[in-house]
């Protein structure tokens, strides 16, 4: 039941460079992402990992370079040549984006059920009963009690909000999910629960994930592959445990040696 069966990459990234004026956001990044693969982008603040994530998720156009994605019909499409309508459809069906701050990814003034149901309604589901039962099912999968379905996320704890955000993203069975520090700012115990949930969902659904994190423990737990970024460049990449257990670059060795041992 290995998820690494497909020979065709889902995402092909070639020489992606993004300048902010004269300053480099990220430079000459290339990689392939296969179905079911979890790629962690690690590095310290300002290393360009979020710039890269935004370029990949069509939230920020790269200055140069190409990003191609395998659409559900099997065709490879350059993301920045999609029409706005195609791009939006992709973002609310085949993709997910989990923000560090759940409020950025949720509608805080509508109920949990509507938050989860929004994507379904956006793609034309017009049956209230079906939408609601699907939302209820997803709340269960992210361990939110059914009786919270009509509550606003404002009344939710940080961990619950994050789980709601995940449900909202996964309800359309996306194939690719971008995550930006999904466990950042949460208590350690809440983090552990969220990580476990993410790990299970990713494995069960065979999701491809690009996750940005500065937490190497999160990268180790969730990712198959890792890219270490520094000053806009990818300085080292490979199998997650290989990079973390046998780091080659000076900066990676510094990062790994900086982990607090508990």
């Amino acid at each position: 039941m290995s998820v690494f069966q497909s020979d065709d990459p889902l995402l092909q990234v070639r020489n992606v460079t993004r300048y902010y004026g004269d300053r480099v956001g990220c430079a000459e990044v290339s990689f392939d992402l296969w179905p079911g693969e979890v790629l962690a982008i690690v590095g310290e603040s300002g290393s360009g990992k979020t710039t890269l994530l935004n370029c990949l998720s069509t939230r920020l156009a790269p200055t140069t370079g190409a990003i191609e994605y395998r659409m559900r019909d099997g065709s490879m499409r350059n993301l920045y040549q999609l029409s706005e309508a195609e791009r939006r459809l992709l973002m609310r069906t085949d993709w997910g984006f989990v923000h560090q701050n759940a409020a950025d990814g949720l509608r805080m003034n509508v109920s949990a059920g509507a938050n989860v149901g929004e994507r379904l309604m956006a793609v034309g589901d017009r049956h209230y009963g079906n939408i609601r039962s699907t939302a209820d099912d997803w709340l269960g999968r992210v361990e939110i009690e059914s009786d919270r379905i009509d509550d606003d996320p404002r009344s939710f704890s940080g961990g619950m909000r994050q789980r709601l955000q995940i449900a909202r993203n996964l309800v359309t069975n996306p194939r690719l999910v971008f995550m930006d520090e999904p466990t950042g700012g949460l208590d350690v115990s809440v983090q552990a629960r969220l990580l476990d949930l993410l790990r299970r969902l990713v494995a069960d659904l065979g999701l491809s994930v690009v996750i940005v994190t500065h937490d190497l423990a999160v990268a180790r737990l969730l990712s198959h592959r890792i890219m270490v970024m520094r000053q806009g460049n990818v300085i080292e990449s490979g199998l997650t445990d290989q990079v973390l257990d046998d780091p080659r670059e000076p900066y990676t060795q510094l990062l790994v040696s900086s982990i607090l041992q508990v």
Partner: peptide, 11 residues
């Protein structure tokens, strides 16, 4: 490649 190693570890 990393994915080939992961596959080896799977089976």
């Amino acid at each position: 490649e990393p994915r080939d190693i992961l596959k080896l570890r799977d089976d």
